[in-house]
Design a protein around this nucleic acid. Structure first.
Lengths: 335, 335
DNA sequence: ATGAAAGCGCTAACAG
DNA sequence: CTGTTAGCGCTTTCAT
């Protein structure tokens, strides 16, 4: 059996309350008693039982984090941010990967609640009405981080995606491109973030008097970009496309792979750009021009907001707008 | 206040013991009582408090996972394996990133223990005597997964690194290479895994009557491979090196970046191979020839072993030797 | 089959 | 400043 507060009290010849007091520095304790208690703790190697503590204080110092897949690089960056800031406030995180399954997300939500987490951060790629409903009726702190959907009913950290698209389009146009193809993903729901990105793209094209050249795909992974390569090359030939702007870096990388494998040189034969700035973006050759989504910061800010609410710190409700940065690299060149 | 077992008991007009019994199916309960309890649980939306439960059962169903950096791809793959298998046994994981700091690792170890985790898996890149000492005197389940060091005193999942090196060398030799440079990392301690890899490399070189061409570096990241590029190219010129075998994929990618940026073509001008098969290895162009380290499996197996011990399942002590596979890709060609 | 009661390890009034 | 006491929500004897 592990050593408990009782053992410490006995050895130090004080009451357990006194021991509790020196552990938590919750109330003044005489120097003498404190010394004895500390000595007892040392010799016994006492470590407080946080579970017991949680039970009475109702504070678990635990945040539940449900993610799509921790193996995804951008996800792990968000988690990194969450964890690092959580640590500063003495919070630990329990992570679970749902692999995009709505039922799993909901199951984890309930599970985490039984574990008495004080808040939950959901990093998802799907829209899950079950979660929305569940969270609305429970008073748990919550944050919905979704890369693809806007979730208006629940707190989230939003990015100015329209602006990101505009910045990229302006840059491409500045490089002399006119026939710019936008590789997007299918918009299967009204609150898809892609809808506003597509809108921004079309607007840019209109502003230079060009017709939009839009290709949509239902796979936003690297292999999706690869598979659509053939079609893109075909359109390039037909319409004289000089630049492909992909709605996600993964697609851009996959596309560049296809182009490489088929002897088409980026950026000499065609320019390619992405969105996100995942880690391979700067490692791949040619390096990928993209707009940076501040994943780490998204995680950091979401938990900071949550924790501030939890510990009752004044929370400045001024919407923090995360800056979007254009990262110019090798994959796009002037024409 | 959340609804407790008491509320359920009251509504169902039974004692809390009975409620507990139906929740846990620990003892027979009359159909009638069971029905009433279940109904009460439904209407109240009761969810058991796992913290309270843990306190009495001494089972937290929590495993602590301390990693170097969750943002590292190979680390996140290990965590994925841990999490997915843990889930099957109804275990959750608490993850913390130590960023390679020994004191932090130890601090987390203690912290996790106070949280009553039932076991700890440490995914580290350093050797930490403090951890070894601490774990030897506590009875917590433990698993030490280290990519760079052998940790003889504590349970771990080892890979046959010598064999991996031999396989790669055999392949390179088969392709006609003789002047093979091995880019290794500095071996600052006796139990560095690199020592046996270097040994295996030297043996291979000896077997074809060549002198080893060894370069050591103290940075095993992508940028390390990039920075050493200049030196490698120089040695290539001097000694007629035709292939560079890097002790980690990250180094190989960095090196290929340097070569690309300096107009040296892989694999036409020089072959490059790695070790690990991190995700970029197959995404990068040219794709990287490497030996696969089964990260996901390492995580999965380590927690499975731990959980079996925890739930008292018979554990087959036959050393599971994880298979090492040679992945032939584009970065190496015959000469 | 069921209830009463003890207790897991700890915190937080409450007295003194 | 310190000890006593009452729980936190739950499981688990021990009777009945």
């Amino acid at each position: 059996m592990a050593v408990t507060i009782k053992d410490v009290a006995k050895l130090a010849e004080v009451s357990i309350s006194t021991v509790s007091r020196v552990i938590n520095e919750s109330k003044p304790v005489s120097p003498e008693a404190r010394r004895r208690v500390q000595h007892a703790i040392e010799t016994l190697g006492y470590e407080p039982n946080e579970v017991a503590r949680s039970l009475v204080t109702k504070k678990s110092n635990l945040i539940g984090v449900i993610v799509d897949d921790i193996g995804n690089h951008y996800v792990s960056q968000i988690v990194r941010g969450i964890e690092e800031i959580g640590r500063m406030y003495n919070y630990d995180i329990i992570v679970s990967s749902s692999y995009g399954n709505a039922d799993t997300e909901l199951k984890f939500l309930q599970l985490l609640k039984t574990k008495q987490v004080e808040g939950i951060i959901l990093v998802s790629e799907i829209i899950n009405q079950g979660v929305v409903d569940y969270m609305k009726k429970t008073k748990l702190e919550f944050m919905y981080l979704n890369r693809y959907y806007n979730v208006p009913e629940l707190p989230t950290i939003a990015l100015d995606n329209k602006k990101a698209v505009k910045m990229m389009m302006d840059y491409l146009i500045e490089l002399g491109h006119k026939k710019i193809l936008y590789l997007s993903q299918e918009t299967n729901s009204d609150n898809t973030i892609e809808i506003e990105k597509i809108e921004a793209y079309k607007e840019s094209m209109r502003s230079i008097g060009e017709d939009p050249i839009l290709v949509q795909i239902n796979n936003h992974r690297v292999d999706g970009g690869y598979k659509i390569g053939r079609e893109i090359v075909q359109i390039k030939e037909e319409k004289g496309v000089t630049a492909v702007f992909c709605c996600q870096d993964e697609l851009a990388i996959g596309l560049m792979n296809y182009l490489y494998d088929n002897g088409i040189n980026v950026p000499n034969d065609i320019s390619v750009s992405g969105h996100g700035d995942i880690n391979v973006a700067s490692i791949y050759r040619p390096t990928l021009t993209t707009t940076k989504e501040p994943y780490y910061d998204m995680g950091a800010i979401s938990i900071r907001k949550m924790l501030k609410k939890l510990i009752g710190e004044p929370i400045n409700d001024e919407e923090i707008v995360l800056p979007i940065r254009l990262i110019k690299r090798e994959s796009c060149k002037n024409i």
